Amino acid sequence: MTLTLTVPPGAKVRVRITNENGETTEIEVEPGETVTITLPAGSTVRVEVEVVDPDGRKRTETFTLKP
């Protein structure tokens, strides 16, 4: 399973991925970048995406991906 994120110009994104064992991976994606994350097959993962807009506003979306 893959997750692809494209960050709009001016925004910053931090992604936290937590697996079933509670292990967390965190990455930051710079403005204008596209990143593809390969998620472990057969695992349920929690993905938290934090977006910081150019004006400093933050918003966070959290979702769970199941196999």
Rank of each mutant, 00 (worst) to 15 (best):
S43W: 10
G56E: 00
T6L: 14
D55Y: 04
K12F: 06
L5K: 01
V47C: 02
T62Y: 14
T4R: 04
E48L: 03
L3H: 07
V35R: 03
V15M: 11
K12R: 06
K12Y: 05
R57W: 01
P31I: 14
T24Q: 11
P67M: 15
K66I: 15
R59N: 01
A41F: 11
V35Q: 03
L65M: 12
T62E: 13
V49E: 00
P40G: 10
P67T: 14
R59Y: 13
P31K: 12
P67D: 05
G10M: 09
V47Y: 00
T4M: 14
L39G: 14
P54L: 05
K58S: 04
S43R: 14
R14M: 09
T44N: 03
G10K: 09
T4A: 11
P31W: 05
T38K: 06
G56V: 00
T44Y: 08
T60H: 02
V52E: 12
A41L: 09
T34E: 07
P67F: 15
N21S: 09
R59L: 02
P54A: 10
V47E: 00
P8V: 14
E33T: 10
V47I: 06
I17N: 12
K66F: 15
P8T: 12
I17K: 07
R57N: 07
E50A: 02
S43D: 12
K58Q: 01
D53A: 03
P9C: 09
T36L: 13
V29H: 09
R57I: 04
M1K: 02
T64W: 15
G32T: 13
T25W: 10
P31L: 14
T6G: 12
A41P: 06
P40V: 12
E23T: 08
V29M: 12
K12N: 09
R59E: 01
I37A: 14
E61D: 04
E20N: 06
T18G: 09
N21M: 07
R46G: 02
G22R: 08
T25I: 09
P40D: 11
P9R: 07
V15F: 03
R14Q: 10
E50L: 01
V35S: 08
K12P: 02
